[in-house]
Amino acid sequence: MPADDPFRLLELPRRYSLTDGEMSAALRKAGMAWHPDRFALASAEERDHAEQRMADLNEAFEQLADPLHRIALLLELDAKNSTASPAFLMEMMEFREDLASAQDAGQNDKVISLLQQLGEDYQVRLDRLGEAAESVSQGQSTNATRESLGALFTEATYLRQSREELARQSRPTP
């Protein structure tokens, strides 16, 4: 476990199934003790320390609030070290082609349903990864292999990035 483990910083259990409420309550509790406002009249050294500590806490919160990041921490996965399955890559190539032709043809309904599909594909992978992460965090083993989890994780990461990118592009230009 790394020294700056976000779960430990926020004194939260190493679990996938943390609620938003649990996480923000943890940040608030830590903030009550560590926020620089609590050290406004302390020495410059203590104040700097509090600034750094609170910045660490805010960063830890951002990481845990992201379910994919939580999975990466619990399953010790890294998108860089895993590869997506060849089938997935084929699927994505087809998806891109479909999307481009729908956009060219001005078929808005088709574009919307393709983007929805992308979101659903992401959610399916996130749920499966989440299940595995929850099992591991409760000390149970998963029946999935590391390779398959790694592939799922890479795919989920890719799907999310694509979705965000496409959402940005399809935003009306001012």
Binding site: P36, Q52, M54, A55, D56, N58, E59, F61
Partner: peptide, 8 residues
């Protein structure tokens, strides 16, 4: 909209 103090 990042909470401050923030680092990156």
């Amino acid at each position: 909209n990042a909470s401050i103090p923030a680092q990156a």
